[in-house]
Write a protein that binds this DNA or RNA. Sequence first.
DNA 1: GTCTATAAGTCGATAGAC
DNA 2: GTCTATCGACTTATAGAC
Lengths: 213, 213
Amino acid sequence: MVNRSTPPQSSNPEKPDKAQAILAGALPVFTKHGYAAASMDRIASAAGVSKPTLYNYFQDKQGLFIALIHQLTQNNSQLILSLPTEPDLQTPPEQVLRQMATAVLEEFANNPALLTLMRLIIGESERFPELAQTHVREIIKPLMERLSLYLASQPQLKLSDPVVAARIFTGSLVHYLIIQNILHGSEILPLERDRMVNGLIQLLTAGEAEGAV
Amino acid sequence: MVNRSTPPQSSNPEKPDKAQAILAGALPVFTKHGYAAASMDRIASAAGVSKPTLYNYFQDKQGLFIALIHQLTQNNSQLILSLPTEPDLQTPPEQVLRQMATAVLEEFANNPALLTLMRLIIGESERFPELAQTHVREIIKPLMERLSLYLASQPQLKLSDPVVAARIFTGSLVHYLIIQNILHGSEILPLERDRMVNGLIQLLTAGEAEGAV
DNA sequence: GTCTATAAGTCGATAGAC
DNA sequence: GTCTATCGACTTATAGAC
């Protein structure tokens, strides 16, 4: 079960590694068929290599899948965390939050690989619970902490619990994406993106409007 | 690929159908392994029938899976819609909403099959998009409409957009379940259920506290 | 129970770099 | 010549379907 022939050092950053080519070829196969139904033959041909080469770079199917998800997680971690690095503490929070929400929804709309990653991680969360946890640790948790800190730094919002508010903000957007995009519900349960964002922002910033205290 | 031998009418509601036994046996196999990795052999032995019997009652693996998800959808549709049939318009909305939220989270906690169904539907939403859409149509949409109507009937909440508020309410809870339970994030990103519910209710009912207008 | 297809994973030979 | 990445062909097991 364990294959410990020396994998041709995949940590050589000089030439565009063949491991990268394999991962790039594996991505669409896994995302289209799911883990179990993705065959190593298909992945090999998609990557333009032979099957033994696959096994030269990755121990087995699981190892390849784990490496792929980890890479995607890394990419998206950097991507997500690079967006609202240090929101202007000057600009009004409703503007910052609206920018964040719109940016997230647009990013997911323009980059279907993100939706795919979400679907894969959820779908395979029983087979690969450690991958799901890695995703929580590397992406969701930093995002949530950042958002909580920002919300807590805006006392005029009068949010009683910024941690929960961050969950509500993120959860509403993720759930919107799940229904509209992943579950293909946009015709069955239509809801304009701007309407969703506006309603969400209004709810979160309603405390501000509370009289002139 | 298409099998049109007469299936012993599985639409006979008289005798506790053998189709029911097959579906009951198939459920844990599909939920544990996912669609692709669930084998008909395993399903047959789990259901206590022979493999030809499977194919006697269901056209093929796809047909069996679709029938299973449809049945689960039906069950949960009735279950979910039976809960807050006609919330007392007397009792204060924060109490009604708290009851709803707690009931939903407890129902999912006590009934892991619901989480499993959610995961299956999301995970197989590319392979079976029509199942995902059925789920939206039969469960999510009625739930959302009911909730929107209730929220709209409570003008003192001052919700500018009850439709979006219903999404936020549901989305926050679903996202909470996804992170804590499906992605196994309860240790990585802990958040007490009551704290989540309280924060959510507080945000939705904050408009009420708005001064004495 | 049987049949056929296809899956994951392996092996011996090859071919190019130094 | 040696070393090593590569590949076509193969084995074994197990899948779906009847």
